[in-house]
Nucleic acid binder design. Structure first.
Lengths: 194, 194
DNA sequence: GTCTATAATAGGATAGAC
DNA sequence: GTCTATCCTATTATAGAC
């Protein structure tokens, strides 16, 4: 059993050492941002010396950020985006997505990697992809349930915006209720008319 | 004429040197976050040597962050929160607030200081106050227009969440439409029933 | 109030042994 | 694959002249 992004998942293959390290890096970068994490921090959190880190990530910190971005994107695809594309009623798919998101962000207690990587510009590709694919997957699910493309896209954007905004406001205020309410509001907005 | 937070404002008194510096610091910190800005960056942006900076901010970078936080809070109070508390119809107050916010964030092109200061924890007091007072001011305006306290607060939080989230998503996607749509949606949500 | 010069430290990165 | 030791640079901060 491995703990990834705050959600327990089972792995088809035993995780490599590198994957274990990346999970630790993910936690560091999403909490403090790229510029807020030093190699000393990483060394302490992983228990590895700097040279060991350079063995796994030859290009150093930027390399680590890319690995974390790819890890986060893969994790979002598997746990959040793909379930939206499956069969079944829209309400079930939305409920599954929101439950997973709630778990990943630990009810708003943990910030979003996307938000905290933005100022540095590190791993910009995966960061952009996470948002873009989230919107795409949501819009596709709404369309599959009969919502017109333009409206589906608008609702999808609004939902992702609400979740990202709620994470910022929850971090700023330490009020988990803000995140809970945002999840509930997103569910209502996404399912209105179903 | 001075340019502050992207919005032209007139000052009752001539701005002190320190205030001019803080305006530059504000721009740096909100773009790159506390950890993404070095004294060398600040020296280059202000044209001042490091010793001059320590003359104005004896405690160094944390001192600068506090000054920027206080500046941002003051700016938000004067330009965003206070207008919400005045007389007049709700629609006018909301319109004024959204127009000012749109100008300050330059249509979503510039990020929010709050979001980018969060990971470091610098200036946490002012950062928290900006969000809390924004919600309070909005809720008060809604209540003054007859909305029940609980509903007013919920709508106020949703509006601030939508704006903060739209700034994140706009930064991530470089799609200014996301921010424009969020402003429009916030206006509709805040005025529903008026 | 600003400058030049200088510390002192932290940060990122590498070499080479095991 | 990990370690110790080392290197170089950036970064923060201070001293003292003007």
């Amino acid at each position: 059993m491995k703990s990834v992004a705050g959600k327990e998942v089972t792995s088809p293959a035993p995780p490599t050492a590198r994957e274990e390290i990346v999970a630790v890096l993910f936690d560091l970068f999403r909490r403090a941002g790229y510029d807020g994490v030093s190699l000393a921090d990483i060394s302490a959190a992983t228990g590895l010396g700097k040279s060991s880190l350079y063995h796994h990530f030859p290009d150093g910190k930027p390399d680590m950020a890319e690995a974390v971005g790819a890890f986060a994107l893969k994790s979002m695809r598997e746990n959040v985006f793909n379930p939206l594309r499956g069969e079944g009623p829209l309400s079930a798919k939305i409920a599954a997505m929101l439950a997973t998101a709630d778990a990943m962000y630990e009810g708003g207690a943990k910030p979003c990697l996307v938000a905290n990587m933005l100022p540095s510009g590190a791993a910009a590709g995966p960061v952009r992809a996470i948002i873009a694919e989230w919107v795409d997957a949501l819009a596709a699910a709404l369309e599959a349930a009969g919502v017109k493309p333009a409206a589906a896209r608008a609702r999808a954007v609004e939902a992702v915006v609400a979740i990202e905004g709620a994470l910022i406001v929850t971090q700023a205020t330490s009020e988990p209720k803000v995140f809970r309410d945002a999840i509930a509001a997103a569910r209502r907005a996404l399912l209105s008319g179903h």
